[in-house]
Design a protein around this nucleic acid. Structure first.
Lengths: 137, 137
DNA sequence: CACAATACTTTGTATTATAAAGTTATCACA
DNA sequence: TGTGATAACTTTATAATACAAAGTATTGTG
């Protein structure tokens, strides 16, 4: 006689209560980080590139912090850096790579999903309650 | 004679290129985490609460992981847990606190801002380029 | 030429996400 | 009734990593 396992395989509603419905796999660790998200958003808003100092101010980051995050993004192939000079001072210019633009756009798509999920909840509860009682004693 | 500092106080455009424009201060560390974001979204979608196992499946988390994140959220006052039994087994029921609902809603507002920023970029560049050259040699 | 400032980079530390192992209790069955 | 399996978590340990503090190299200034 098959025992009733608690990890039931009953079909459920696939739409809003399926397994993995809220796992948000697309939230890549590299992109889903406050500081780096700000950096990417800044660069996406300025396709022709930004200087180290611009990013520092736009994202309110310390030098070391920004440097580290840029390295991470660079190693992930999301941005490219160009070393040059503006006037007498050395400057680092950053811009998104084509890949970076695509990855960022994909990430934003997931964020839209998160927002959409949350907005659905604001509605008067169209979703059926999940697993109120599953096996009364 | 006042030296020209690079941290310039020039007004700039306050709308889209001001300092801190992309710092996203509202992205609270407790909420801005893949796993916890999934948990919160799940609970927001099910205001009458979810069981430990429901969350485990919805968010695809291991037991230990989920347990830890629930503790963090609980300590932050975002959710409350109720220990009971469903049939013979002990069960933990989780639901958002009023505070948790509010904080989550606030967080979602920031996400909307992020998405809006990114969507603005998709437009043919209405924003003026920031700091192309600031002090020609 | 000393001193301050710019534009970063490197190093260290403290947090923490995740996995692995442990705990308690129930159930099936021999 | 005792032994192993399973459920439902919790605790501990480890591997990442975000952040800050200190370091480096160059330039400008009196």
């Amino acid at each position: 006689m098959p025992r009733k396992t608690t990890t039931d395989k009953t079909p459920r509603a696939k739409t809003s209560a399926s397994a993995g419905r809220f796992s948000y796999d697309g939230l890549d660790r590299v992109l889903h980080e406050k500081a780096r998200l700000g950096i990417l958003a800044s660069l996406a808003a300025n396709p022709d590139g930004l200087l180290f100092n611009d990013l520092k101010q736009l994202c309110v980051l310390t030098d070391g912090n920004l440097s580290r995050h840029l390295t991470v993004l660079h190693e992930a192939g999301l941005l490219e850096t160009w070393k040059g000079t503006t006037g007498p001072r050395p400057q680092t210019m950053c811009r998104l790579t084509a890949n970076g633009q695509r990855r960022f756009a994909e990430y934003i798509t997931v964020l839209e999903q998160v927002v959409a999920d949350a907005q659905r909840d604001a509605q008067p509860a169209t979703t059926p309650p999940l697993s109120k009682r599953r096996s009364p004693a």
